[in-house]
């Protein structure tokens, strides 16, 4: 019967694997862009439709790039946290308004408050795809050289902020 120990051993490994699998989120995809420079862009902002912001305009500072939209329900969940951060001036927050209408975006910010130093408009979602965005909200941490250091998928929680994002900000500034 010893020869049957091999397949049975495989089943044991399988069980352990599945146990581990239960705690993984199938919806989270790690980004290959970590450690790579932010894609170049030239976009208008929500507040100033005629102005064009380039990625080089943002360099030289550590900042968060937060992808949001007025139609996004989960964005409302993380919004108070972003407001707190902006009030405490932890780090500049640049918004990326993803596939949205300007009026809706302005309405959202005036109703909920505006945590963003500025919000870039990405109406056709092209910069989103350049950044590998597949759901909103997503948040990127960009360092002084304009390199992506971290990507958070989904709404930022208090825990994620304290445990991961703030230490990383401190490390890079």
């Amino acid at each position: 019967m010893k020869k049957f120990l091999i397949p049975i051993g495989i089943f044991v490994l399988l069980g352990l694997l599945l146990w581990r699998g239960l705690s993984l989120d199938p919806r989270k995809i790690p980004s290959p862009l970590i450690g790579k420079p932010l894609a170049s862009f030239e976009l208008a902002t929500v507040a100033e439709p005629d102005k064009r912001i380039k990625n080089s305009d943002l360099q030289g500072q550590v900042y968060l790039l937060n992808v949001w939209a007025s139609w996004c329900v989960a964005c409302r969940q993380e919004h108070p946290l972003l407001m707190d951060m902006s009030r405490e001036k932890v780090v500049p927050i640049i918004g990326l308004n993803y596939k949205d209408q300007r009026d809706d975006a302005v309405g959202f910010l005036s109703g909920m408050g505006n945590p963003y130093d500025m919000s870039l408009m990405d109406p056709d979602g092209r910069l989103g795809i350049e950044l590998g965005v597949y759901g909103v909200p997503e948040t990127f941490l960009i360092d002084k050289q304009g390199v992506i250091r971290y990507k958070h998928i989904g709404p930022i929680s208090e825990q994620a902020l304290q445990k991961t994002i703030l230490p990383l900000i401190r490390e890079h500034s």
Binding site: M1, F4, F11
Partner: peptide
């Protein structure tokens, strides 16, 4: 987690019986 534990239990008992009496 419940189904996994149940599955593990069924598997270990049945393979245990199999290995000893097969």
């Amino acid at each position: 987690a419940y189904i996994l534990m149940f599955m593990t239990l069924v598997l270990s008992v049945s393979f245990g019986i199999f290995l000893t009496k097969g």
